[in-house]
Amino acid sequence: MNESILEVEEVTKLFGGLAALDDVSFSVEAGEIKAVIGPNGAGKTTLFNVLTGVYRPNSGRVILKGKNIIGSRPDQITAMGMIRTFQTVELFEGMTVLENTMVGCHSRSKYGFLSNSLRIPRAMREERRIFEEAMQILTDVGIETRASDEGMNLAYGQQRMLEFARALASQPEILLLDEPAAGLNPYETGELSNLISKLRDRGLTIIIVEHDMGLVMGISNDIVVLDYGEVIARGTPDVIKNDPKVIEAYLGIGTE
């Protein structure tokens, strides 16, 4: 077995009296696709927010590549190789597709206010590198022809792809996807599924939150099921499909 790249240990996050995450533990192995599923309000997005440093949990640890990242800033966590996409598309307004993607390169570039104001050659070289990498990634996800359009003007499916591209631009080791298939048509979902598998084959570790069970069961190696902030089941897709607790959690809130 592979060693684990990310360990979530006994994480609890309270909002007022509500435990959005209640003593959640699991570990993610390098190179696997881990799915996190659960009914609406189960705490999946909150989990991502804790992992990426948006929220500080009330207790527990998150160990990324051997280092506890609780208390680290989001940008530091991104620089360590873990990046996320958003459930509701969060593109940068007024910026082109290319510029959006170039922002994703932020953590792997370093020249700041002074060097860039003065256009020192090294900063310019870096800028060219960022540009070329961003173009390459746009080509990879298939939206390079829209590079100079404003990101917000893309069709919804392409906006999702752009979010994807922007995250990939940081060349992450772990990619967190929050409902990437939401709002996509079946064809686009198929493309997405291929893309995710391709990324896994390149060695990327992926954690995906998704309601589309076809997609989840098709690509994930391992599944964690959350309900009311608690882990109620974990295992391979086959195990989860037949777990009575999971079926009940989903049925209990009404069929969706």
């Binding site: 948006v54 860039n116 800028e127």
Partner: peptide
């Protein structure tokens, strides 16, 4: 020079969506 660089993009990203800018590695 500044606004055409990565810093300029970071500033505009911060303007548009702070959480997203943070998540993309901008030290907002």
């Amino acid at each position: 020079n500044l606004v055409l660089s990565r810093v300029g993009r970071g500033l505009r990203a911060l303007h548009s969506s702070e959480v997203a800018a943070d998540a993309m590695g901008v030290n907002t």
